[in-house]
Write a protein that binds this DNA or RNA. Structure first.
Length: 421
RNA sequence: GCGGAUGUGGUGAAGAGGCUAACACAACCGGCUGUGAACCGGUCAUUCGUGGGUUCAAACCCCAUCAUCCGCCCCA
């Protein structure tokens, strides 16, 4: 056992798996740019108070999952547990809402931290990609955000997913609904699990999310948030569903859907994917939050945003396509047979690489047969042999490892960039 | 924070108190001094997560601790 081990809940990512992560980030960024989002990069740590204010004192993130510490001057610092609060802080601090046309559209990705027990698709340091639309006055932005997610999943060749959607309406509707839920559960409270008794006090909406009492709860005729919506919210919700349907985006209305962070107010959604072993992962979710900017002392701007769990998306891609499909095969293998050919080997490598080829120059003094074994094992397309005979005749010998054919190419041609496989 | 399972080379692992910790794969070297397979030969854990205890004797039994995986809570 090595002496130094990674910290609990952190991961090392390398080889094919790193390619998976790269592909996810690249795809997310590319799709977001097609929706005219700009990138925003914010600090990995912020003052602790930002998160307790933004995510709500009652949320578990604030109560027990924050990675917080005091810096050398005694300031309370927290490694970011989610992306939205930092982005909104940056927008307010830099007054981006005043100098740019609304809505502002930003995407971000990076590491986030929550102090919790690791398990499948869940780490203490995890990666997330997210977007925020700030200053959005229209439910069309809710639709845009969902379309962006489907666009990303489509580009990643993920076809099988479920978008669950629900709405709490505006703040007033949400509060009405919250009271309805609380009143409804008052006579049932003794039948609920311990956690739910606590939820009843702190955040009654979350009782709907309970897994222990799921069956019990589903038999009850619980007031659904839809009934608490006012006319306008109802119409918007239906309009959103209608437009999504006409755009062939399949969403399922989940009247019990509740999001974990307290700042969501209007439309909310989560995206689920089921793995081959039957396990379902929530790979992301989002929705509208209309009071957070004001809450953080900014102007009164309504926003829409979502976050995608990059680690979970990676699990999905590996489950769907296998790690091997993300391998990158090298193209050229340069085999210097003797010391006299070393400098030529570098010249050839340089030319090929300048033409954007993947080239491996064998730097170990291997026997010819082990070099061929190596070339075969790593799926090279071409072996380039540099031996004394070739050198004498000012040429190199090429072997196409797929077709077995061998031929000679003059030094002038290969160094002139005329050979590219 | 709570619960379950598991820790033996690079990997998969045998091993259940007693010689030098099996076997397989991978890797490297060689047989084959200019060509990938197969074959053959060689090399590859002084040590079983860590610390302590029991014993003449511990990978194995006991205690503690750490770590990993899985689940709960919660969430991406």
């Amino acid at each position: 056992m090595p002496k130094y081990l990674k910290q609990r809940g952190t991961i090392d990512i390398y080889n094919e798996e790193a390619n998976v992560y790269q592909k996810i980030i690249d795809t997310c960024c590319k799709c977001s740019r097609n929706f005219n989002f700009n990138q925003i990069v914010t600090p990995t740590f912020e003052s602790s108070s930002l998160y307790s204010r933004a995510t709500g004192e009652s949320s578990d993130i604030v109560r027990k999952e924050m990675y917080d510490f005091k810096d050398k001057k005694g300031r309370d610092i927290t490694l970011r547990p989610e992306g939205t609060a930092g982005v909104i802080r940056a927008i307010i601090e830099n007054k981006l809402y005043a100098t740019n046309d609304l809505p502002l559209k930003y995407y971000y990705h990076g590491s986030f931290f929550r102090y919790e027990r690791p398990q499948i698709g869940r780490f203490r340091e995890f990666m997330q990609f997210g977007v925020e639309i700030v200053g959005s006055n229209s439910y069309l932005d809710d639709i845009e955000s969902i379309l962006l997610i489907t666009n990303i999943l489509n580009d990643l060749n993920i076809k099988d997913y479920t978008i669950r959607i629900n709405s709490f309406g505006n703040e007033k509707c949400r509060n009405t609904h919250r009271d309805n839920i609380k009143n409804f559960f008052t006579p049932h409270i003794e039948n609920l699990c311990e956690d739910c008794k606590e939820r009843f006090e702190k955040n009654p909406l979350r009782i709907l999310d309970c897994k222990v009492d799921k069956e019990y709860i589903e038999k009850l005729n619980i007031p659904v948030s839809y009934d608490s919506l006012d006319e306008q919210s109802k119409n918007e919700f239906n309009e959103i569903l209608d437009i999504l349907k006409k755009n062939e985006i399949n969403v399922v209305v989940d009247k019990y859907l509740v999001r974990g962070l307290d700042y969501y107010t209007g439309l909310i959604y989560e995206v689920d994917i089921t793995l081959k072993d039957g396990k379902t992962l929530t790979i992301g979710g989002g929705g509208r939050y209309s009071s957070l900017v004001k809450e953080l002392d900014g102007p009164d701007l309504s926003c829409v945003g979502f976050g995608l769990g990059v680690n979970r998306l990676a699990l999905v891609l590996i489950d769907l396509f296998g790690l091997d499909s993300f391998a990158i095969n090298p193209k050229f293998y340069i085999m210097p047979f003797s010391k006299e050919t070393y400098s030529l080997a570098f010249k050839i490598a340089k030319t090929l690489r300048e033409n954007n080829n993947n080239v491996v120059l064998e730097t170990n003094n291997k026997s010819i047969s082990s070099m061929f074994k190596y070339a075969s094992k790593h799926n090279f397309e071409y072996a380039i042999m540099l031996g004394e005979d070739e050198l004498k005749n000012n040429q190199v010998k090429i072997k196409n490892l797929k077709t077995q054919e061998q031929y000679y190419i003059t030094l002038d041609d290969i160094l002139g960039g005329k050979f590219n496989g």
